[in-house]
Each structure stands twice: as C-alpha cells, then as structure tokens.
Nucleic acid binder design. Structure first.
Length: 294
DNA sequence: GCGACAG
DNA sequence: ATCTTGTCGC
C-alpha cells in the first residue's frame, strides 16, 4: 500500500508569514515572493470550465430550487476555493473560511480560528491574515485547483499582495479580488460602467518593479508601465446608484488578462464572485456561532 | 511635511 | 474588517 499523500503540504514554507519580523524584513520577504511568483498563465483549465451560472443561496450554499435537476456533477471539474475572513475585535481573533466549489456546487466548507498577532497595515495584510488563511486551507480535504482571495494580488506596492503570498506558498494558481484599489492607475477613469466592462490597472510610482516584469509583454518601455491588474465591473444596476468595480489581479500562475476572465466566469449575478460570497457567508456563520457560545 | 493606502 | 437602523429605489 502506498503512503497517503499530504496534498496540503506547503510548497514554499520559507515564505510563511511570520509576524515576529520587522517591517523591513516583511517587505524584503515580499520582494522575494514577487520574484518567485508567476504572473503568467500556468493553469490546466480554462475560465469556461469553472464557470458558475447560478448564484447559490447565501445561507445554504445550495443552488436555487428552480434549478433544473441536471445530471450528476462532473467529478473531474476543477476545484475553486474561495477564502474570506471575519474578525472578533474584542478577542483579537480571525475566523478564516474556505469554501470549495466544483461544477458550480459547494463540495466542502472549512474554517479556522486564529489569534491575530499584528494590526492591519496597508501593504502588509498577508502578515496579519496569512496564517489564518493557510490554517483554513489545511482544514480542507480537497486539493484546490484555483484560489480566490479577498484582497489584492499583483496590485500591491511590491507586487506581492495576499493572493500572491498564499498562491506562492501553496504553489497554486490564485487570483486576488479587492473591493478597493490599493495602488496603481486605471487606464480609463472608473465611472459608471456597464456590466462586463474592464480597464487595465498599470503600475504607478508607488509600485516597485520586479523580475517578473521582464517576462511581460509590457517589458517594452514604449508600452508604458506594466499591467498589474484590472478594474472589472462585475455588476451594475440600470437605474440605481452606481456600483464600484472590483479590482482583480493575478496572485500566482495567472496572467492579468486571464484573471479577469476567471473572475468573470465565477460571478453569477452578484458583485462578488460566488466563491468569495460563499466564503464570506461561511465566515459570518462561524463568527455568529462563536459569539453565541461566548 | 503632505498625501495615501487591500482587509 | 467591525460597531449599527433605517431607508431610498427598482
């Protein structure tokens, strides 16, 4: 009999986010991480293969009842894992939730509760939330094919946002989905835009250049600063208040262009992609249960 | 010194 | 992120 394979083994443990580091050490680790990251496609599936067309119920994670009783789910479809967190400020704890989705349906929920060691500092988010996220991923029994993180990836001062950090540590394709822009400059102004619209986010003076940039088509100086992500209008209302776009960026093993397509395929009528929505809901449930217990 | 900044 | 109620509009 063959020994069980630990699919949760860390590929790059040297990048583990250790909060006992100085700001300078954290920043230099991020530079190494960005150099180790791949901002080009290295996936064995297409956006179409992970597409989700019906939004699940937030509390049950189940598809709508009106959904056709289709045949069996495809057991070979890629597994997309959404990750999100909730907090208990009074106890200084983070609740991390990971939701695994295959063929549009939730196949597993996992979560972890971790003490928070450092405060939130823009640009150093992974050192606050990285450990909790990795703990939730380890609690998962399925092996992810794609990670969808709540926050930036390449859209980051050192091109090593939380999606990149987690993606590189696990050596898994990952994308970052942020609700607000950390840095960089949109090609076109982000005004009232129709659903499906997107524009490139390019590095500005606050973004350090990394070795990976030379692999970009944008390495050509005439082409302007490298594209580090996109603003993507995942949802818009016809006659109502404007919805802000999402800011999506490569974490690891995905190009900026493919990242938009992956996120677009994972959106099913809400502003946030389904994996993120459901992870958010799960984190909320765990938090409420914990608050109820005391 | 001022500005600016994911969750 | 979290603390929090109602409220404006489709």
């Amino acid at each position: 009999m063959s020994p069980p394979i630990d699919t949760n083994a860390l590929a790059r443990p040297e990048f583990l986010p250790d909060p006992d580091r100085s700001r300078e050490e954290m920043e230099s680790l991020q530079r190494e991480l960005a150099a180790a990251a791949t901002f080009a496609d290295d996936l064995d599936f297409t956006p179409a293969e992970i597409a989700i067309d019906e939004a699940a119920d937030r509390s049950t994670g189940l598809p709508p009842a009106r959904s056709e009783p289709t045949g069996d789910l495809d057991p070979d479809a890629p597994v997309v894992v959404g990750i999100d967190q909730a907090f208990r400020p009074e106890r200084d704890e983070a609740i991390s939730a990971a939701v695994a989705i295959r063929d549009g349906c939730v196949i597993e929920y996992a979560d972890a509760v971790t003490p928070l060691s450092i405060p939130y500092v823009p640009g150093l988010l992974a050192f606050r939330e990285g450990e909790p996220i990795l703990a939730a991923l380890e609690a998962l029994s399925v092996e992810p094919d794609l990670l969808v993180c709540d926050g930036s990836g390449r859209i980051h001062f050192r091109q090593a946002g939380i999606a990149t950090h987690v993606g590189v540590i696990r050596d898994l394709p990952s994308v970052g989905v942020a609700k607000r822009l950390l840095c960089g400059e949109p090609d076109e102004p982000v005004g009232e835009r129709p659903e499906g619209w997107s524009t490139a986010i390019r590095a500005d003076d606050s973004v350090e250049r990394v070795g990976g940039d030379v692999d970009d088509a944008d390495a050509d100086p005439d082409a302007g600063p490298p594209v580090i992500g996109h603003a993507y209008q995942s949802r818009q209302y016809p006659n109502s208040r404007r919805v802000n776009p999402l800011y999506v960026s490569p974490g690891h093993r995905a190009s900026a262009e493919t990242t938009v397509e992956l996120v677009a395929a994972l959106c099913a009528g809400y502003k946030l992609p389904e994996p993120t929505r459901l992870a958010d809901a799960h984190a909320d449930r765990v938090k409420r249960r914990l608050d109820g217990d005391g």
